[in-house]
Simulated assay, not measured.
Amino acid sequence: MSEKQPPGTTVTVSDTHHAPFIYVEQAPSCGNNGGIINVTLAAYRHIPGGSGKVATDLVVTAHMR
């Protein structure tokens, strides 16, 4: 569990330029299991199909804990 920071405290975050970009349009599932928060992120995917139609489906892009 994270410690609560006193007011006025800042947290420094460094960027290694290797963290992936996660494309997300919704979080269809989230919860708390034994004090651990979990979130599933998802995005729509558009796939060209036959006869000029486009199929759309929702795919998971990340599971966060």
Results as ranks from 00 to 15, higher is better:
39 V>P: 01
33 N>L: 11
59 V>I: 09
21 F>A: 10
62 A>F: 08
42 A>R: 07
21 F>Y: 15
8 G>F: 13
57 D>N: 11
56 T>L: 02
34 G>P: 01
11 V>F: 08
11 V>M: 12
62 A>I: 09
27 A>I: 09
10 T>R: 12
3 E>I: 06
36 I>E: 14
27 A>N: 12
1 M>I: 13
51 S>R: 08
60 V>N: 11
45 R>L: 03
32 N>I: 12
2 S>C: 08
16 T>Y: 03
51 S>K: 10
21 F>G: 11
5 Q>W: 03
14 S>Q: 15
65 R>C: 06
6 P>T: 04
31 G>P: 13
30 C>Q: 14
15 D>N: 09
51 S>H: 14
8 G>N: 15
39 V>G: 00
45 R>S: 11
14 S>W: 13
40 T>A: 08
41 L>C: 06
41 L>H: 00
32 N>V: 12
28 P>W: 00
57 D>S: 04
23 Y>P: 11
65 R>V: 11
54 V>G: 01
14 S>N: 04
16 T>W: 02
29 S>G: 05
45 R>Q: 03
27 A>Y: 12
12 T>F: 05
13 V>Y: 13
16 T>D: 07
37 I>P: 07
30 C>K: 09
13 V>E: 10
18 H>C: 03
15 D>T: 05
27 A>G: 04
63 H>A: 09
48 P>T: 01
56 T>G: 00
35 G>P: 12
24 V>K: 15
60 V>W: 07
11 V>E: 15
30 C>R: 09
49 G>R: 01
13 V>M: 11
35 G>N: 06
57 D>Q: 03
17 H>G: 08
57 D>M: 04
5 Q>H: 06
59 V>K: 07
64 M>C: 10
55 A>P: 00
63 H>Q: 11
29 S>V: 11
39 V>I: 15
3 E>G: 00
